[in-house]
């Protein structure tokens, strides 16, 4: 049975016991998926109805959980989404028993920024009616846009987080569709950060200056982040203390990213929603991954794997094992 059919069957089984099931439905064109809230059995027909199937299921549905606290929610999750759910439960931001998790083995998702960049020479992808037909067959994606057909390999338009993903299967689930994908031999070498660190310090600083100067402060990165839970009390919007001015300055834009990054220290699961949501494609996930790497090195800890784990920055050891302090 195809994955979609299996998932639909499970959703229909779960649906009577919950207020709604969150998954992915069709967006405004064939390339884009949108979160789908299924309340009645007839809604389930729209689940993953786009031509990309699970390859197009880019959004992280865990985003909606904290706001829906008190309701019983079914959630269809990829591996990375399930880590966000675990982290939210570990921080008591949601109750585990209020969520029914439906997992499946994820084969990676599309990165629309990459696709857009590849097509940019020809036309503007975002325009409604720009992309008219999409067909995913085997390892190739064929799409028709502006009356012309383009073909891409699946790997070249896959999100960067997918080839290095160590948890393609949901790390917790109440029911699981399909057969678990093996990922034992996959390691994350943090090559993206290593590449940045091969540049000189001065060049890195100018890199961020260049990238952040494009920021329009829409805060989509914050709004898409499943672990940004302060909502109306965001430090970036506070007047007292006045962390950020209202000026259009690169420094303030960068400072906002640093606030976001540090508030995710030891919490970020690397789902990449911030970077995906950025309309300008600024590589903001790099910052979070760098701090995540530091936390992993120091405390052998990765967020979102264990609901009982104590986040490392909320605890301490009298003798730290891996912190070597400077001798004055």
């Amino acid at each position: 049975m195809a994955l979609r059919e299996q998932l639909k069957k499970m959703i229909l089984e779960v649906l009577p016991g919950v207020d709604c099931v969150i998954g992915w439905g069709a967006g405004y064109d064939a390339l884009h998926a949108a979160p789908l809230f299924m309340r009645a059995p007839e809604d389930v027909e729209r689940f993953l109805s786009g031509p990309l199937g699970a390859f197009g299921a880019v959004q992280n549905p865990a985003l909606f959980l904290p706001e829906l606290a008190g309701k019983k929610i079914g959630l269809v999750v990829k591996g990375c989404d399930s880590r966000s759910v675990v982290q939210l439960a570990a921080e008591n931001l949601i109750k585990r028993e209020e969520v029914v998790i439906i997992g499946f083995p994820c084969e990676g998702v599309i990165d629309l920024h990459k696709l857009r960049n590849k097509l940019a020479a020809h036309f503007v992808v975002n325009e409604p009616g720009g992309v008219t037909a999409v067909n995913l067959a085997g390892d190739h994606l064929a799409l028709t846009a502006g009356g012309q057909e383009y073909t891409f390999k699946r790997d070249e338009i896959m999100a960067d987080k997918c080839p290095r993903c160590r948890e393609p299967n949901a790390v917790i689930s109440d029911c699981f569709a399909g057969i678990e994908r093996r990922a034992d031999n996959i390691a994350d070498d943090y090559e993206d950060i290593a590449a940045l660190e091969r540049m000189s310090l001065e060049d890195r600083f100018r890199f961020w200056e260049q990238e952040m100067s494009r920021c329009v402060r829409c805060y989509a990165c914050r709004n898409a982040c499943p672990l940004c839970v302060c909502r109306d009390h965001c430090a970036g919007a506070s007047r007292d203390p006045h962390w950020l001015t209202q000026a259009d300055s690169t420094r303030d834009k960068f400072m906002f990213q640093l606030i976001h990054t540090l508030h995710l220290a030891g919490r970020c699961t690397g789902c990449g929603e911030c970077q995906r949501a950025c309309p300008l494609g600024i590589p903001v996930l790099l910052l979070k991954r760098s701090l995540g790497r530091a936390v992993e090195e120091m405390f052998d800890y990765r967020a979102g794997l264990d609901t009982e784990a104590k986040p490392p920055l909320l605890t301490f050891r009298v003798e730290e094992r891996k912190i070597k302090e400077r001798e004055w």
């Binding site: 890199f207 961020w208 530091a294 120091m298």
Partner: peptide
């Protein structure tokens, strides 16, 4: 126990600075 928590945070920031292009020697704790 305030400085135990501080030690973890400050060390994390020190290791994060190179990614930003800021020399980590600009920040020390003692």
């Amino acid at each position: 126990e305030g400085n135990f928590y501080a030690r973890r945070r400050l060390e994390a920031v020190k290791r994060f600075l190179p990614t930003l292009g800021i020399d980590p020697r600009r920040f020390e704790y003692s």
